[in-house]
Write a protein that binds this DNA or RNA. Structure first.
Length: 810
DNA sequence: TCCTGAGGTC
């Protein structure tokens, strides 16, 4: 209490008749400590009058004066002074002033000065006066102002107030709807406020979970985790409800790995999760069937009995993994459990199985599942019907899809947006673009009416039924696909989307890229990426891949490669599809630089941890290599067909060899050693051709060929299968070089010529180990055995020169 | 739980 307060008090006192002497110890000079009130003591029921604690040692001669003064101060909402009196006098007859306090409080609360309200109510709590706020009018005002405060961005102050209110005998949940408070905390991204608030509530665990979930729904994983961690301390025990909520949130935030570490944290404490935690964990990790199955087995080992939800999640996981066989196994198991009476298949089970079959393009069986579920007394819902229609859509059976849609309406099931979208999709899949648009327009203009023959009435009676139709982003995306190559229409749809309050998503933009591509407008297709970056939806790997595909399709390969570089610049990780799209870019041999580009993509892909599917690249390299003998009037087709039979080995070895020979291809060729050890004859042939092609492309007319070319076949091992293979390879290469290319080839025997230059400085030495191989071959391995002999072929530089002349003149 | 975007040889 400050001296200003005292002054105020004096002024106020003068307004009251018969001023008695001031208290013995004025508060400004000797403030009394606040009266102490044991916590257990003052939990009174709703008070209609204010009761002040008694202080037996105080003189009470002036009590009535101070009661009057306090009443007046309270009524005028001068609570600082009011408290001082109460504190100083220690005992005031509450009955006198309770009404005034309420009046004053009401005006204070209604002033909207929440901070002041917090201070004043805090004062009441400190003095152990706890009934006041529970007065009807004051309580209503407090509720009103709290709500106002939440809306006006005073979250922290509102929580302060709630904290003070928790000192009164009332339920915090009654002051404000918990949802309202939590929503505001989530909107403000303020987990600390949510934690404080949840801690005040009677049903703390529920409010904590609510907060965790709401943060998760907004994609704010970090805040959700903060609240979760705080809930652990606050709730004092391991709360499975909180655990399953945070795991669900991991799913909402697409962070399934986080859910695993949360689960592992629980296991590390030797705490066994309950069924709900296991189900949530499996659900969040449904994208990983292996993991889900492991968890499923583990929960059984722990004696946690799976319920139908567990099985439904497993089925969903199979569905995502496109594992029809596993899904069928699990389904049979569930059927078995049902026959024993321990489980009941539900609409989820059937719907998921329908989707499993729909994805496997087994639409008849999908339809069969529907009959089965109806037989079992389970009514298909909108999801079930969507999956059924989707089964037909995927199979291109548009008419069947319409029949099912009709059937759904007849069954009295209201179609939702997704059902409508699937039906539109069925039209698109069947290339009935007009039909899709007609349907859409009829729905949109709200004239969409279906005659619903109510089965309980006479069959002649028809009840027209209006189906509410709310297009979603997916609706527009499907329609954009129905634009074919009409990019004007597609663009118009995107604009329409915005006008109806929808936002284009990644799919919309990628589809637009495809539409531009289809119309041959590469420039605009690529431009979409820029537009995306400027919008709320930055391009993702799929958008880039779509754009790259457009470039590839229209033979703008340099643009494709530059987009690839760009996506890496933006740290967008290419995936298998991206790599394959690029590797497939060149269907014909081109220049050395093009081959090198592809090889570098190939190596990048392996570095990124993808198991390359090098079929295309191998084709490409082969074609490119074979290209140099095309001029020799050989039938390329013939050669290729003979190649195919022999290409069984690990393709990566071949490609690595070609790549390592070519990656230094732009350096000046001094002497060339081609290592074909470990390759099949066809592969060896490709590598030799690749090197020749590189030499040819780097050759400028008039250049001088300084060295012979060596081909290293390997160490001779007499009488083995390896020797036979080596001879095979040798003959193939000799045949190729002599007959197809007209080169002069010499077989080099055991003598190692000293003029061969293979060293680390040689850019064409693919294997540093080769030097060692040569060294070893020079040394007798054992006195009793013949020395190992390195078999090589030499292509003379004279003939190489002639060949290059011939080629460059051609 | 259902709908919409990029790749596709054995």
């Amino acid at each position: 209490m400050s001296s200003t307060t005292t002054t105020t008090l004096v002024i106020l006192s003068s307004s009251i008749s018969n001023p008695p002497p001031l208290p013995k110890h004025p508060p400004s000079t000797n403030p009394k400590p606040s009266p102490k009130h044991p916590k257990s003591h003052s939990h009174r029921p709703l008070l209609t009058t204010v009761q002040f604690p008694k202080h037996p040692h105080k003189q009470t001669q002036n009590t009535s004066y101070y009661a009057q003064l306090a009443s007046k101060l309270a009524e005028e909402a001068k609570f600082d002074d009011f408290f001082m009196i109460v504190e100083t006098v220690g005992s005031v007859d509450g009955g006198l002033i309770s009404e005034c306090v309420c009046k004053g409080l009401l005006s204070l609360v209604e002033s909207g000065e929440l901070r002041k309200v917090v201070r004043v109510l805090g004062g009441f709590v400190k003095l152990g006066i706890k009934g006041l706020v529970c007065d009807g009018a004051v309580f209503d005002a407090v509720k009103r102002e709290c709500r106002k405060g939440l809306k006006c961005g005073q979250l922290e102050v509102v929580v302060d107030l709630l904290e003070v209110l928790s000192g009164f005998p009332l339920s915090i949940e009654d002051v404000l709807e918990p949802v309202e408070v939590i929503r505001t905390c989530v909107y403000k991204r303020n987990p600390r406020a949510a934690i404080r608030y949840a801690g005040l509530c009677t049903r703390s665990d529920e409010i904590f979970c609510k907060a965790i979930l709401e943060f998760g729904k907004r994609g704010d994983m970090a805040s959700a985790l903060t609240v979760f961690e705080a809930s652990k301390d606050n709730l004092g025990c391991v709360n499975m409800y909180a655990y399953r909520t945070i795991i669900d949130v991991c799913g909402l935030c697409r962070d399934h790995l986080q859910s695993r570490s949360i689960y592992e944290g629980l296991s590390a404490q030797n705490i066994n999760p309950n069924l709900y935690v296991f189900n949530s964990l499996m659900n969040v990790n449904a994208c990983d069937l292996g993991y889900t199955m492991n968890i499923y087995k583990h929960m059984q080992n722990l004696g946690v009995v799976p319920d139908i939800a567990s099985y439904n999640i497993l089925l969903k996981s199979c569905c995502l993994a496109a594992r029809l066989d596993t899904a069928q196994e699990i389904y049979r198991e569930v059927e078995d459990l049902e026959s024993k009476g321990s489980l009941k298949l539900d609409v989820f089970t059937y719907s998921t199985m329908i989707k499993v079959y729909a994805d496997a393009k087994m639409w008849q069986i999908a339809l069969g599942m529907k009959d089965k579920m109806v037989e079992a007394g389970v009514t298909p819902n909108a999801v079930t019907w969507s999956s059924l229609i989707s089964a037909c859509a995927k199979a291109g059976l548009v008419d069947q899809a319409f029949v099912l849609f009709e059937e759904m309406l007849l069954a009295g099931c209201m179609p939702n947006s997704q059902c409508c979208n699937v039906l539109l999709y069925a039209c698109v899949q069947a290339f009935q673009y007009d039909r899709a648009f007609r349907l859409f327009h009829s729905w949109k203009s709200n004239s969409f009416q279906i005659t619903n023959r109510n089965l309980t009435q006479e069959s002649s009676q028809v009840v027209p039924m209006k189906v509410p139709f709310k297009p979603t982003t997916a609706t527009y995306n499907v329609l954009m696909k129905a634009c074919g190559t009409d990019h004007f229409l597609a663009k118009a749809l995107m604009e329409e989307m915005e006008t109806v309050g929808l936002s284009p998503n990644h799919i919309s933009w990628s589809t637009l890229i495809g539409v531009y591509g289809g119309s041959g407008d590469v420039k605009n297709a690529v431009q979409v990426l820029k537009t995306m970056r400027e919008s709320d939806v930055p391009p993702d790997v799929i958008a880039y891949t779509a754009a790259i595909k457009v470039c590839v399709k229209h033979r703008q390969l340099n643009l494709a490669f530059s987009l690839f570089a760009e996506m890496k610049k933006y740290r967008i990780q290419p995936n298998m599809v991206t790599y394959n799209t690029l590797l497939r870019a060149r269907t014909k041999y081109g220049s050395l630089i093009e081959v090198q580009q592809c090889l570098s993509i190939y190596r990048d892909m392996r570095k990124a941890g993808f198991k390359p599917n090098d079929y295309y690249l191998k084709e490409l390299i082969e074609e490119w290599c074979e290209g140099i003998i095309q001029d020799n009037n050989r039938s390329q087709g013939q050669l290729k067909s003979s190649n195919k039979r022999d290409l069984g080995g690990p393709q990566s070895l071949l490609l690595e060899k070609v790549a390592s020979h070519l990656e230094m291809g732009n350096a000046e060729a001094q002497s060339i050693a081609v290592d074909v050890q470990g390759l099949t004859k066809v592969e060896a042939r490709i590598v030799v051709l690749a090197v020749l092609r590189m030499i040819k492309e780097n050759y400028n007319p008039g250049d001088y060929v300084r060295d012979d070319m060596f081909i290293i076949l390997g160490v001779q091992e007499l009488g083995t299968a390896a020797e036979k293979h080596q001879i095979d390879v040798r003959d193939t290469i000799i045949k190729l070089l002599r007959d197809n290319l007209g080169l002069e080839v010499l077989t080099l025997g055991p003598k190692i010529p000293t003029d061969i230059r293979i060293n680390v400085e040689n850019p064409f030495n693919p294997h540093p180990d080769l030097d060692k191989t040569l060294e070893r071959s020079r040394l007798p391995t054992s006195p009793t055995r013949r020395p190992a002999v390195l078999q090589r072929l030499k292509v003379t530089r004279r003939s190489l020169y002639q060949w290059l002349q011939r080629k460059s003149n051609a």
